[in-house]
Computed example of a mutant assay.
Amino acid sequence: MEKPQFVYTTYIRSTPEKVWEAITKPEFARQYWGGNGNHSDWQRGSKWEHVSETKGTAHIIGEVLESDPPKRLALSWIDPDDTADRSKVTLELETVEDMVRLTVIHGDFEAETSMLSDISGGWPKVLSSLKSWLETGAALKIGCKQACVEA
Results as ranks from 00 to 15, higher is better:
T103F: 03
G121P: 03
L134G: 00
V100H: 01
G122T: 10
H106S: 05
H106I: 04
I142C: 06
C148W: 10
K141M: 13
L130S: 00
I105Q: 03
T136S: 14
I142G: 02
D118R: 14
A138H: 14
S132N: 06
K125Y: 03
A147L: 13
G121D: 08
S129F: 05
H106W: 10
W123K: 04
K131Y: 03
M99A: 06
G121V: 11
E110D: 13
S132M: 09
T95R: 11
R101L: 07
E112D: 11
D108M: 12
S128D: 04
T103P: 02
G143I: 12
A111V: 14
G137W: 08
W123Q: 04
W123N: 03
T95E: 07
D98N: 12
D98I: 09
M99F: 13
L116E: 09
S129M: 05
T113C: 04
S114V: 12
K145Y: 13
R101N: 02
F109M: 06
S120P: 15
E112V: 15
D98A: 10
G107P: 10
L127K: 00
K131H: 01
L130M: 06
A138P: 01
L130G: 00
A139E: 03
G122W: 08
I142S: 02
V96H: 10
S129K: 02
K125Q: 15
K145W: 14
G143H: 12
I142A: 05
V100N: 00
W133S: 01
C144I: 06
V96G: 02
S117P: 04
S132R: 11
A147F: 07
L102V: 01
H106E: 01
W123E: 03
L102K: 00
C148E: 06
M115E: 01
E97G: 05
L127M: 13
L140R: 02
L127W: 00
K125D: 01
M99E: 06
G107F: 14
S114K: 13
K145N: 11
K125F: 05
M115Q: 08
V100M: 04
T113Q: 05
L102A: 00
V96W: 06
K145Q: 11
R101F: 02
E110R: 15
L140V: 02
K131D: 00
T136K: 05
F109S: 00
E135W: 08
V96M: 09
G122R: 04
S114F: 15
G143P: 07
T136R: 04
S129Y: 05
E135S: 03
S120C: 12
G143F: 15
E112R: 15
V96E: 08
S117T: 14
K141T: 15
A138W: 09
V104K: 01
A147M: 10
S117L: 14
G107E: 03
M115T: 15
E112C: 11
I142L: 10
A138V: 13
H106N: 02
W133L: 07
G137Y: 06
E112S: 15
I142V: 15
D98C: 09
I105M: 08
M115H: 08
